[in-house]
Structure formats: structure tokens, C-alpha cells
Simulated assay, not measured.
Amino acid sequence: MSALLMRETDRLERRVLGAIEFLDATTRTRVDTPLDVRMDGARLLRNRRGLYVITHAEHPLLALHADAFETAPVQPVLGSVAFTLLVDDRSGRYLPRSVAVTLPRDPAPANAGSPASLFRPIEVPLYPAATAPVGLNWSVLRVAVRDSTSGDALGGVLLIVTSGGNTLARGLSDWRGAALVAVPGVPVTTWSETPAAVTVNEINAQIEGVFPGSGGTRISAAQLSSGRAPLALPQIDPEVVESQRAALPRSTQAVTLATGRRQSLFLVLALP
């Protein structure tokens, strides 16, 4: 029997530059519904797992990575080339946001466990819109964010719920200044901090609102009542805002959380 002869006529091999995984900010589960994802200067492809793979970047040195397999180029330095990714959920369940992405990722197999590894997707939390569904046992805060002087509705405000030095949840306000912050996992009963009681069914917390340096919006009461959305919706990078919060306009308010409790509150910020 003669051996079967095969001839290679074409080969397509490319090294990808990374992947993005979008997560529900409340449940930390993957967002499987298709999203509108754009990154200037790069091409992305959604694969069957729901990851958005960075297949190409328009940078002269990063282009060399596409065809390098056994040994990755030493230039540019890891994480030295910055891109801005924009994501929008057309279904309206999640709010739009931006993400700072730095390339190249670490290609060393020995470092596969590192968050900066090429073999791990970049995790990006998406924050729920004010009308998003909530869990039965979550503690839910519905927040209206306003400017203290004008009463303008403030969009793109990062909301952070903390208790005892721990961050419990985060959220974003939309262009109407409306935000949904869901806090899952609040204990039905927990140990009391006061000597008179052994257990309690609620915990003391605080919610902090941080107005971004750019990307936030201010909408007057007249425009808000008309229902006319601005041409540019808030689209901020929450991680960047949180890292700069000490230098940005912010305000805090005490709240009490309990399993299954729904609360509505106003949060007022003084903007320059």
C-alpha cells in the first residue's frame, strides 16, 4: 500500500495579543450577550467562548508579535503601549464604559497565573443600568445623583459602597443621574457591634459618589424632564476614576443594608 502523500499549500498562523472578558459587576459571571466593542488602532474578534480577542494592533512594534511564536520580540516593553477600549450594550442592561488596555501582555508560560499574562483574559466588569433586574435577596440602592448648586443630574458618577473598610459593591450613574447599586451577600443575621445585642439583621455602610475628571455629564432639570439624551453619553473608566478619587469631587452618605431591602436615596455632590 502506497503511503498517502500530502502537500501543504497554505498556512495561517498568528499570535493574538490578548483577550477581553466582560463580567457582570454584581455577580462576577461572564456577560454572554453580544456587545458593541471598539478599540481604536486594534481589531477584535468575538470567539465562541464570548471572549473578545485582540487579533491585531496598528503599532509598528506590536505588529512584529503577530508572526513571532517560539520567542516573542523584546520590544516594546510589556504594558508600554496604551489603547482605549469602548464597550456598549445595545440591549440596555449594562451601562457603556471605557477601559484602558495596555499591550503587549506577558507571553511567558511560567507567568500564566499573573493578571498581566497573555494566557489570561483582561477582566472588565460591566455595571447595571438603573432598569436592570435584581436578585430577590440582594440589598438594592437606587440612587439619584445631583449637583448641590444647580440641581443638575450627574452622569458617569462612580458609586462605591463600603462597610468596615471593605468594598461591597460598585455602580455607575447614567445620563439621567440614576444609578442601581446592588449589594449581594448581605447576611440575614450578623454579629452586632454594640454590647447590648448579640446579632442584628442589618449592617451599617456608606456610599461614596465620585465625579470623573472627564467623561461625566451634567444635565439640567429642563432637559431631564424633556427626556432628551445628550449626544455624548457618559463613558468613563471606573478603575481610573477610583484610583484618582482623592483628587476628584466626591461625597459620602451613610446607609443601612439588609437582605432584600430596596432603598431610594439622593446623593449630592459639589462640583467646581
Rank of each mutant, 00 (worst) to 15 (best):
V77K: 14
R97L: 15
E70V: 08
S139W: 00
G79W: 01
W138F: 12
D67Q: 10
P96A: 12
R97V: 11
S117V: 02
Y127E: 02
A132M: 01
S80E: 01
A72P: 00
P107I: 08
S114H: 12
P107R: 10
R90V: 10
E70I: 08
V99I: 15
P115Q: 12
V77M: 11
P76T: 08
F83L: 12
R93Y: 01
A66C: 07
A100L: 15
D89A: 03
P133R: 09
D67T: 11
P115Y: 07
S117R: 06
L86Q: 15
L85D: 00
S117P: 03
P107Q: 09
S98E: 09
E123C: 01
F83C: 08
P96H: 11
P115K: 08
P115D: 13
S80W: 04
G135I: 08
S80T: 09
E123S: 12
T102F: 08
V124T: 02
S80G: 12
P73H: 05
L103I: 09
R97G: 13
H65S: 05
A129S: 15
P104T: 04
P128F: 05
N111R: 14
R93L: 14
P96K: 09
P104Q: 08
L136K: 15
L118F: 10
S80V: 06
V87A: 07
L86F: 12
P73Q: 09
T71N: 10
P125A: 04
S114N: 13
L78R: 00
P121Q: 05
F83S: 05
G79R: 01
F83Y: 13
A66D: 11
I122V: 15
P128I: 07
G113P: 01
R93K: 13
P125N: 09
P76G: 09
D89L: 03
N111M: 10
S91Y: 09
A82V: 14
P109W: 11
P76H: 11
R93W: 01
F83D: 06
R90C: 10
G79Q: 03
T84G: 01
L78F: 02
G135S: 07
V99N: 06
E70Q: 13
L95N: 03
A68H: 06
D106F: 01
A116P: 00
A129T: 12
L136F: 11
V81F: 05
A100P: 05
V140T: 14
Q75R: 14
P121R: 03
L126H: 05
R97T: 11
R120M: 12
A82W: 00
V140D: 04
R120T: 07
A108R: 15
L126D: 01
N137E: 15
D106Q: 03
E123F: 03
L86H: 14
S114K: 07
L78I: 07
L86S: 15
L78H: 01
G135E: 10
V101C: 05
V140Y: 04
V101P: 02
L86N: 11
H65I: 01
P104L: 00
A68V: 06
G92A: 13
N137K: 06
T131D: 14
V74P: 00
L86Y: 08
T71D: 10
P96W: 07
P73E: 08
A116S: 13
S117Y: 03
L95P: 00
D106A: 05
